[in-house]
Computed example of a mutant assay.
Amino acid sequence: MSAHPRYSLNQATVKHASLAEAIAATQEAGIESIGVWREPVADIGLDAATRLIADSGLRVSSLCRGGFFTADDGPERTAALDDNRRAIEETAALAGAGAEGSAAVLVLVAGGLPAGSRDLVGARERVRDALGALEPFAASAGVTLAVEPLHPMFAADRAVVSTLGQAIDLAVDAGPSAGVVVDTYHVWWDPDVLQQIARAGSLGRIASYQVCDWLTPLPADVLLGRGVPGHGHIDFGPLTRAVVDAGYTGDIECEIFNADVWARPYDEVAGETADAFARVVAPHL
């Protein structure tokens, strides 16, 4: 069994798997690349995680996630910046352990409004400041900071960066070691998305492309409304062709937050998502 060579299984799709279990499911499905999350790495320690990655022969497509730096100046913000520096070091180590073609990409989620705050403009400025502070450290480590815009319904509690255009502006302001994530779930609704994908490509800023579908009705926890590509409302053709035309040649991750998917055997999920990718995404590459 062999998956499309650019397909990468993001570990969030098999959320309850350990890193070793996620690697095994990825290999069983013939997938060549994996997107890693920090929590499973922390569970076993970075040294053990890098050994697992090195022994697996898999590429690393990204590390999720850093960010969450919208707090006002003070201990919480200092701690967040320090944690992001650790995440940058982890990204470099894991990518270095991966097979040839691994990407030292740290996915960043901006963070929502601080408790009690309604100052959306100020929160976005603090994201800009944090990226500017972290970019030189990332550059020295050979890591790309990948700003991921999230759907506007998450602006209050998860990400004050809501459009691809906003993410590109932040990356450009931060410096050459910053880019953006194009995640179909978060950007498919945006009437300007195709133009913004082209803009990101012209600036060399597309650091990651992630695919999953938009399901309705939305679940009570809207975070868990993502589906296997082809099961929902997103037209993957125009988005994928735009990313390709913009010059992105890296791995393409499937990242699904869905309780029903998480409850299934990991190898089944890996195989199903690889098959879905081959049907609805790969024809447009």
Rank of each mutant, 00 (worst) to 15 (best):
I31A: 07
A54I: 14
G247H: 14
V269L: 11
R199C: 13
A138P: 06
T273A: 04
A198I: 15
R85P: 15
R279M: 03
H186D: 08
V107R: 04
R118H: 15
I31G: 07
M153Y: 10
N10E: 05
P176K: 08
P229M: 02
A198M: 13
E255V: 04
M1R: 06
D47M: 11
I44Y: 04
F69H: 13
G66H: 02
T184D: 03
H151G: 12
P136N: 07
V269Y: 03
G30L: 06
L108S: 06
D157F: 10
Q196N: 15
W188A: 15
I88A: 05
I34Y: 00
I23C: 10
S33F: 02
V222K: 13
S208R: 15
A87E: 10
F69E: 10
G237Q: 03
A103T: 07
D251G: 06
H186R: 04
S18G: 12
L218P: 09
P152C: 09
Y209Q: 03
R86M: 14
A80R: 11
N84H: 14
Q195N: 13
P283G: 01
R158Q: 15
E32Y: 06
S8G: 11
G96I: 06
E90Q: 14
R158H: 14
L224N: 12
D183A: 05
R38I: 08
V172L: 09
A167Q: 07
L106P: 09
T26Y: 00
G175K: 05
S8V: 03
K15A: 12
T144I: 13
Y7H: 08
D55W: 06
L131S: 10
V211C: 00
L106M: 07
A17Q: 13
E21H: 06
V121W: 12
C212E: 07
Q196C: 14
P238V: 08
P176F: 09
L224P: 08
V172P: 08
A87L: 09
V172Y: 05
F257N: 01
V36N: 01
F277V: 02
S33H: 06
I256Q: 02
R226D: 06
S62Q: 12
A171H: 05
F154H: 12
V14Q: 00
R205E: 05
D83W: 06
A178P: 07
V222N: 11
F277C: 00
A207E: 13
V127H: 02
Y185A: 04
A25P: 02
A97D: 09
M1G: 12
S61K: 00
S102F: 05
E32L: 08
A259M: 11
S61Y: 03
L223W: 15
V180E: 04
A123K: 01
A22W: 00
G74I: 12
D72K: 14
G57L: 04
L131A: 09
L218M: 13
D73C: 05
L81H: 04
G179Q: 01
C254W: 02
V261F: 01
A97S: 14
G98P: 00
A276G: 09
T249Q: 12
S62R: 08
A259W: 09
T144R: 10
P238E: 02
I44Q: 09
H284Y: 05
H284C: 00
D235Q: 13
D245T: 13
P219W: 05
G35Y: 03
D119R: 08
R124F: 08
A71K: 06
A141C: 14
H151D: 15
I23S: 08
V147L: 14
P238K: 01
S117Q: 09
T184W: 00
G204L: 14
V127Q: 01
S208Q: 15
P283S: 03
R77L: 15
